[in-house]
Design a protein around this nucleic acid. Structure first.
Length: 430
DNA sequence: TCCTGCGGGTGCG
DNA sequence: CGCACCCGCAGGA
């Protein structure tokens, strides 16, 4: 949003503070959920945004009692690193997610580095005047107001899901090292040549996206040349094992951040709908086919399944179509959509998917098990599968998925399935 | 077992 | 008074 485009009303909406007695209610633009809010940022989410409802953040944020039941305050715990500063494969650093629970965190710090068995150490966050960065959440009417104070002065930890998946895998590994991975593979699953096959390799094959140091980078989180810090392709890399798209996914690739982002745009475009690139031709109604198909089922194909069910179209609401600064919550991020309107003159989502791509999408939606949500976040979107050309990952979830129909998938896709999916993908990486 | 939110309580500036 | 932080509790996954 350009400042000069702001009218006084917009300015008023932007000038709120989380502590204000009265927060703006005439909100015209709700924000994409920000997984990695940093600096002094404010966002207004829909009260139906599941990620916002859960006050999620990929930073390790713990609850802080501010003795104000109206405003939830959370403070950052920093990141757990290897005190030996060891490096995993491809020079990736170990940035673990601090446990939120105090006891669990103490326990965590007694554990050893999963890479080198060295002691772990917690780097506290001191990004807010020497104190941890704080996030504030406040539910007000149809909106959830978010405000962050401070700038994280440490690398990003694993995301919550990565940490959970790592724990899960570790548990599985400990419980039965002889369990055949075949149990987790669908009949169509194929191992990818060159992939490691040990569970023990897991974390270093996928979970340390934050330590990815692109050539020319500053060694910190991905920022240079990229307006957000975590591209969907990073997620694809770590969770979907898109090793086939080496130049996109491989953190050791010589592709620089800007180039990477340019390449990302292709697959991001549909989702983020950002800028000129993302404006689909008005004549392109292929997405509406999906919409209509699903409308027949009485649900919004783009945000159903426990994702915010925005009244769609929602008069008077729109989303900022600039790219989110952070990756979306893969869990439940709705895709902010705006119906075709005189205002934007464009359709909300993918830029210009041709018929073939559309067909592929439909095929995958109905015939393949795919990342379990129809909240098509960039990370999960089956469309990205088509773009990223990685057919190996069209597999079926044994048993359960075989009886799923479209409607059930819409209904049931959630974190658990997501995690299942992650594990399935992990198995491909190993 | 851990996450999350709540709230009582303490200490500091 | 605001803030950071400790602690325990409860509900949930």
């Amino acid at each position: 949003m350009e400042p000069e485009d702001l009218d006084s009303e917009d300015k008023e909406i932007l000038s709120w503070d989380i502590n204000d007695v009265k927060l703006p209610q005439d909100v015209k633009k709700i924000d994409w959920f920000q997984e990695w809010p940093d600096s002094y940022e404010k966002y207004i989410y829909s009260s139906e945004d599941r990620s916002a409802q859960r006050h999620l953040s990929s930073w390790a944020m713990r609850n802080t009692n501010n003795h104000n039941s109206r405003i939830l305050k959370k403070s950052c715990l920093g990141v757990v690193v290897c005190s030996r500063d060891c490096s995993a494969k491809e020079g990736r650093k170990i940035y673990l997610r601090p446990a939120i629970c105090d006891k669990a965190r103490q326990k965590q710090q007694r554990k050893l580095c999963p890479n080198c068995d060295g002691p772990l150490k917690l780097i506290p966050c001191r990004g807010h005047g020497g104190f941890p960065v704080t996030n504030f959440w406040r539910h007000e009417g149809r909106f959830i107001f978010f405000q962050s104070k401070g700038e994280h002065d440490h690398p990003k930890p694993e995301t919550k899901m990565e940490a959970e998946a790592r724990r899960t895998v570790k548990k599985v590994q400990g419980a039965s090292s002889s369990v055949s991975l075949k149990l987790n593979r669908g009949p169509e699953a194929k191992s990818v040549p060159g992939e490691a096959t040990s569970w023990g390799n897991l974390p270093f094959n996928w979970s340390f996206q934050e330590s990815i140091h692109l050539p020319g980078g500053d060694g910190g989180p991905l920022t240079a040349g990229i307006p957000h810090q975590k591209s969907p392709n990073e997620f694809l890399f770590k969770s979907y094992g898109l090793g086939g798209a080496a130049d996109l996914a491989d953190p050791t690739s010589t592709v620089g951040p800007s180039e990477l982002y340019e390449k990302c745009k292709v697959s991001n475009a549909r989702i983020y709908g950002a800028g000129d690139l993302l404006q689909p031709p008005v004549s392109d109604y292929s997405d509406l086919q999906i919409w209509n198909k699903s409308a027949a089922l009485g649900r919004n194909p783009l945000n159903d399944n426990g994702c915010p069910s925005y009244p769609f179209p929602q008069a008077g609401w729109s989303y900022d179509f600039s790219p989110p600064q952070n990756a979306l919550d893969p869990l439940s991020q709705q895709i902010p959509v705006e119906p075709p309107s005189a205002k934007t003159g464009c359709l909300p989502l993918w830029p210009s998917p041709g018929p073939d791509l559309y067909e592929e999408k439909v095929h995958m939606e109905f015939n393949s098990y795919y990342p379990p949500t129809t909240c098509h976040s960039p990370q999960e979107d089956p469309f990205l599968f088509s773009y990223t050309s990685y057919p190996h990952h069209q597999y079926s979830l044994p048993g359960k998925s075989s009886k799923w129909n479209f409607d059930e998938e819409m209904r049931y896709m959630g974190l658990d399935h997501y995690n299942n999916e992650m594990l399935l993908n992990l198995s491909f990486k190993m």
